[in-house]
């Protein structure tokens, strides 16, 4: 009994995450379905916000998957199909935000911070580097020789 339970648990843990897309939602045309499937992975479910509508079991995610497929079946391009939802729910539904004037900080902010930090680190390390030593003059050489030989003389 116990072994059975362990086996059942192991099997349950092995099961991969299944997509929430139900067979009745899918388009008959495999090429269109593949496009819709790809797009739905890039659209955020507004109910459970860290899931795509492809992953989410929420009723609204199902509705949006169906709407997406309706648009695609009606001949909309990928962009048009996504725009249909963006017009209603805002850019927030795009898991990959588009590059726009108001998303520049989002896209390049981290790079900017990295550059600033790098500049700061460079300036700091330069200020800490030891002064470069010039070649020894003849006097220095003589002084060094005198010191090195001082033991023998003593």
């Amino acid at each position: 009994m116990r072994r059975m339970a362990v086996a059942a648990l192991a099997l349950a843990l092995m099961a991969g995450p299944a997509a929430a897309v139900n067979p009745d939602e899918q388009l008959a045309d495999p090429a269109l379905e593949a496009r819709a499937h790809k797009l739905s992975k890039e659209l955020r479910c507004v109910v459970c916000q860290n899931q795509s509508i492809d992953d989410s079991d929420a009723a609204l995610a199902r509705d949006l998957r169906i709407i997406l497929r309706e648009r695609i079946a009606a001949g909309a391009s990928d962009e048009e199909a996504v725009d249909f939802l963006v017009q209603r729910y805002g850019s927030f539904v795009q898991l990959k935000p588009p590059l726009r004037a108001d998303t520049l900080a989002l896209w390049f902010g981290p790079l900017g911070v990295l550059l600033l930090g790098g500049l700061g680190a460079y300036a700091y390390m330069r200020s800490r580097a030891p002064q470069k030593v010039g070649a020894l003059t003849a006097e220095d050489e003589a002084e060094a020789a005198r010191l090195l030989n001082s033991d023998k003389a003593g």
């Binding site: 507004v46 009723a59 609204l60 509705d63 209603r88 729910y89």
Partner: peptide
């Protein structure tokens, strides 16, 4: 009943 009007209005729930 289908929720389509709500979706037009951007209703999430």
């Amino acid at each position: 009943p289908t929720g389509r009007i709500g979706i037009e209005l951007g209703v999430a729930g």
